[in-house]
Design a protein around this nucleic acid. Structure first.
Lengths: 232, 232
DNA sequence: TTGGCAATTTGACTTCGGTCAATGGCAAAG
DNA sequence: CTTTGCCATTGACCGAAGTCAAATTGCCAA
C-alpha cells in the first residue's frame, strides 16, 4: 500500500488524475519532505531541478529587485503544485511560511512521467490556468488599488484559502478567527506596500471595528460586509 | 490544402505540436477572423465561449475596478494563444490594440480536441507556464518599481516582443525605431500609472536623450544602456 | 485651408504612502 | 524574573505620483 492512500490531498492535488497503478509509479519517483517555517525549497534564478505538491502548510513564491525590495508573486496552499516543469529556470524562490510538508520530485523524472501520462498533464494545465487567473486578479490589486483596499482584499482572499482542509493554520468559521501565516513584512511584500502602511491600515480596521487583532498572528473578522465594501 | 499551410505562425503557435492530419482536423473546427483596432473579441466576466490563436497584430487583456479604473493584465502578440479553455468564465476582456487577424475556435470544440490530442495540451501547458512566468515578472514591476523604472521596463519589453515576425508594428533594428501599438492611456493601464505620469516620464527620457519621440505613436531608442540602467 | 475634436503635454497643487526615528510589546534565553 | 532582541506600532515629515485644469498638438473631415 503506497503512502499516497492516506494522503490528505490525494483527491485534490494533481494526483487526483491518476489511478491506483499510476499513483504507485509516481510515488516511487517522489519522496516526502518536511520544511520548517522560513526554510527554502527552491531559489530564485536556479535551473529548475525539482517540483512538488504541497501536502500541508503555506509557502510563498518571491522575487527581489536588485535594490533589495522583495515582491511575493504567489502563495501556495495544500494540494497546490510548486515548481516549473519543462526545463526552464525558476524566476522566483519558494520558501515555507509555516512548517510544511511537501511531496517532491526531480523535475526530470516528473517531466518524463507527465509526458507519458496525459491525464496528469491535463490536470496540471487546468491548475496552471487557474493560477494564471488568480495572478491576473492580483495584478489589478497591485496596479490599481489603494493601500486600504489592498489590505482588505488580502484578508478576504486569505480567509477563502484557509477554509480548505490541510491548513494547520485554520480559519475557524464560527469565531471568524484566522491565524496569519504572514509577518507584517510579508504582508507588505505581497501587497507592494511598506510594513508601516500595512500596520496603519490594520489598526485603522481595528479601530473602525471591522476586525480584531488578538495577537500579532491572529485576526478576527468582526464585520465581513464592511471588509468586502472596503476591498474595492 | 488547408489554409494552415501558409499560416505565418504555423510553427510557432500551439499548432506546431500537430501533424498534417491533426491540423486539417483542427482547421475544420476553426475559422479566421479579422479585428479592427479597438474591437473586442471577448468581454470580461462572460462565460468562456471561444478561444483563439493570434496570427497578426497585438491585443490586450484587461480588467476594471468598479470605480472605473482599468488595468491591462496581459498583452498578446502573433502566435500567442487567447482565451480560457476548460469551462471557466473569463476574468478579463480581450480587445485588439492594432488591426489583427486571429484564428478562433468554439471553446467547447477546442476542449474536446485538446483532450483527444495530448500533444496539443502539452504545448498549451508549456505556453501557459511561460505566460505565468511573464505575468509574475510583471507583478514585481507593478508592486515595487517607480514610475520611471516602469516606463523604461515597458519600452524594453515592447522592444523584445516586437522583433518577432508577424508584428505589422515592427521594431526596425538598425534605426532602433518602434511603432507603439499603445496610446498613452493604455501604457498607463499596463503600468498602473496615470496618463500624465506616463507622459512626464516619456518627455523626461526624451530630454535626457535616452529616447526620441518623432510622433505620438513612434519611439526611437537612442541610448539603450541608459534605458536598461533606468529599468531598475 | 480651416475648423473641430481628441489625445497629449504641461503646470499648479494635493495627497497618499514612503522614509526615518522613537517607542512599545511579546517571546525566548539566561 | 529579568534581560535581550526582534517585530510591530506610532508619530513627524517628505516626496513621488495623482488630481484638476489649461494649453498645445496633431489629425481628420469638411
Amino acid at each position: 500500500m503506497s503512502t499516497c492512500d492516506q494522503c490528505v490531498v490525494r483527491n485534490r492535488s494533481i494526483c487526483a488524475a491518476l489511478d491506483e497503478n499510476e499513483i504507485k509509479l509516481l510515488n516511487s519517483i517522489g519522496r516526502r519532505r518536511n520544511l520548517t517555517a522560513g526554510e527554502s525549497l527552491i531559489w530564485e534564478g536556479e535551473d529548475s531541478v525539482l517540483v512538488a505538491n504541497v501536502i500541508e502548510g503555506v509557502l510563498k513564491l518571491s522575487t527581489g529587485t536588485e535594490d533589495g525590495h522583495e515582491q511575493i508573486v504567489g502563495v501556495v496552499y495544500p494540494s497546490d503544485f510548486i515548481g516549473r516543469p519543462f526545463g526552464a529556470t525558476t524566476g522566483y524562490g519558494v520558501t515555507a511560511l509555516t512548517d510544511a510538508r511537501v511531496c517532491v520530485f526531480s523535475r526530470r523524472d516528473f517531466d518524463g512521467f507527465a509526458r507519458e501520462h496525459p491525464s496528469l498533464g491535463q490536470k496540471l494545465l487546468e491548475r496552471t490556468l487557474g493560477e494564471l487567473d488568480r495572478t491576473r486578479r492580483w495584478m489589478l490589486l497591485l496596479g490599481r488599488k489603494s493601500a486600504s483596499e489592498k489590505v482588505a482584499s488580502f484578508l478576504l482572499e486569505l480567509m477563502e484559502r484557509l477554509v480548505e482542509p490541510g491548513c494547520k493554520v485554520v480559519f475557524d468559521q464560527p469565531s471568524r478567527q484566522l491565524e496569519l501565516p504572514f509577518s507584517r513584512q510579508q504582508i507588505a511584500d505581497v501587497l507592494g506596500l511598506t510594513i508601516e502602511t500595512v500596520s496603519r491600515q490594520l489598526t485603522r480596521l481595528k479601530v473602525e471595528g471591522t476586525i480584531g487583532l488578538p495577537s500579532r498572528r491572529e485576526v478576527v473578522i468582526r464585520n465581513l460586509d464592511a471588509l468586502v465594501a472596503g476591498a474595492g
